[in-house]
Design a protein around this nucleic acid. Structure first.
Length: 187
DNA sequence: CCCTGATTCGC
DNA sequence: GCGAATCAGG
């Protein structure tokens, strides 16, 4: 697959929204996260919020051709950009930052950057449905979950509530009680 | 271990 | 230009 204008545009959009490279790769399809990262760099839209790390990164000395070369690196600072393409992207940095520190209390509020579409769900993403599946504002929680566990920690608490300890008998085993669908309706 | 992005370099 | 391999960090 090649990087068509549309794919590049979608890549730029998702990247700007804070999606991870793997998520973007998953939604684009046909590419790996490495491809996405590579493209992101080539497009020059990398380094989002990344301070110049102190000291590290001698970079791999991979055997074989050693390209020492690094003498005169002075000169052109590279203006970059020059979007000749017909991208309608409004290069709005939009700092956004991180606003919500407490997601716990807010029942169904997942940051845009973490929301998942049906296509980006994996074995370790929360599949808790949020919203009405019949509308376009529907999405899955998408936060990380343990392998093979369908929901993130937060939604597991909702999905697997103790069968109530009223019964002094015992049974500590968590039982699946209400289907998330019910909760989804309510939200 | 899982994940993240960053970088290099053969193609 | 592309992206696998690799690296470095969480």
């Amino acid at each position: 697959m090649s990087w068509t204008n549309e794919r590049v545009e979608l890549l730029s959009k998702l990247w700007a929204e804070g999606h991870s490279a793997s998520q973007i790769a998953g939604e684009l399809g046909g590419v790996t996260r490495n491809a996405v990262i590579g493209k992101v760099h080539r497009l020059g839209l990398s380094g989002r919020a990344k301070a110049p790390s102190p000291a590290s990164k001698p970079r791999r000395p991979r055997a074989g051709s050693a390209a020492p070369a690094s003498p005169g690196r002075t000169g052109t600072p590279q203006p970059q950009s020059q979007g000749a393409t017909a991208l309608k992207m409004e290069s709005a940095p939009a700092p956004v930052a991180k606003p919500e520190p407490e997601i716990e209390l807010i029942a169904e509020l997942v940051p845009m950057s973490e929301r998942a579409t049906i296509l980006s769900l994996t074995e370790r993403t929360c599949k808790w449905p949020i919203g009405d599946p019949s509308t376009d504002d529907f999405y899955f929680c998408g936060r990380v979950s343990d392998a093979n566990v369908p929901y993130c920690a937060h939604h597991c608490k909702i999905a697997y509530q103790p069968v109530s300890d009223r019964r002094r008998n015992n049974n500590n085993k968590p039982l699946a009680v209400s289907a998330p669908i019910a909760a989804a309706r309510a939200s």
